[in-house]
Design a protein around this nucleic acid. Sequence first.
DNA 1: TAGATTGTTAATCGATTAACAATC
DNA 2: TAGATTGTTAATCGATTAACAATC
Lengths: 219, 219
Amino acid sequence: MQEKNISKSVIRRLPRYYRFLGELLKEGAEKISSRELSERMRLTASQIRQDLNCFGGFGQQGYGYNVSELREQIGAILHLDDARTVILIGAGNLGRAVAVHIDFERYGCRLVGIFDRDDTLTGESIAGMRIRSADELRAFCAAEHPAMAILCIPRDGAEDVVKTLIGGGVRAFWNFSHYDIHADYPETAVENVHLTDSLMILSYLMEENGETEDDTVTN
Amino acid sequence: MQEKNISKSVIRRLPRYYRFLGELLKEGAEKISSRELSERMRLTASQIRQDLNCFGGFGQQGYGYNVSELREQIGAILHLDDARTVILIGAGNLGRAVAVHIDFERYGCRLVGIFDRDDTLTGESIAGMRIRSADELRAFCAAEHPAMAILCIPRDGAEDVVKTLIGGGVRAFWNFSHYDIHADYPETAVENVHLTDSLMILSYLMEENGETEDDTVTN
DNA sequence: TAGATTGTTAATCGATTAACAATC
DNA sequence: TAGATTGTTAATCGATTAACAATC
């Protein structure tokens, strides 16, 4: 389906389109023009038309875009209808929250295994799935061929785990660890979610934004 | 300290510099050149020098950069030495994980309150802090003037909560909800952390990366 | 048909990279 | 001093915006 090579900037906006179209659908909207959508999303109509046209003509001149159809198209581009197998590495606070909080099915994923190196957790259950020992990881990969791994582990263990998993055929990492997975393996897809980086950016922004204002002193 | 207006792209890279410099420091490195750092971080030496020079000359010609000093400077730019008061809204899985998992002190923040609209949780404790009823929120803001709020709540409640909090003087949002906080309030800093957007991007990338490869069929 | 809105090309803007003079 | 590496200007590249012809 995809044409030529789409820029990363465009890809990064697709989920947001998908989200807004979902909201419009809920509200019962049948069609939307690039101008209307641009006002909602706070970007230019030009950009929307450019972005969507990377993948083909989803709109109709004089009419706009069919909300439901466009949403489905974007969903297909994002492969949200697949059923990739996913494993979670690390059953600490963050790992648990991700396992319970994320509705994987909606994003083309299926959680099939949870691992932790702390063996006192082995056998415990999260989201109805028992935690396995990290020792089982290699055998599990050989047997089940999980496509994606979610890393919710400390920085130190991450490098080795990544090596093991790539050896085991994992080709995508959703990485919450502080270790930056290098693109050493060109066939491997990586999304780094560095929560603390995000917090630091906010820390910067909140101090810089206020600088024109005479901040009322709280006393 | 800051000069002119720094581009968003530069700001977004600062936490990563900070992180890598921390690692170098741990390894005992005293100095680093832009070239060495560029190899580690997988970006160009030019970009590093450009980025750092937005804030002044931290380096020394013929020598490089002092690791410890540079790290501290970036920390200062990011205001990591402040002690802003932070409240958490939403004590579900994600809220709990954030409260427990993030070491706020390291990022210039101090968690001072946790709120949830589910009153059956009121009184329960997370990270040694009791959960308060959402009804107390307005009064708490008036009394304590929290500077930042972390939103770990469903999309539906988010808009109202944001209004209340801005009314209560909150000027920064770390937003994990699916609601996009609009920049309606120019003085308000926002970092949206849309985890599912990130998962969708990964979903796209993993399918597009492999397209040159004859994927072995698992049977 | 006339009006609206897309698809697409061209113009602008901003960010990254390259180059080199300044200087430790 | 000679070598190394920064700070900074200029060149390139890519992404965004504007404009408009195509067309529903």
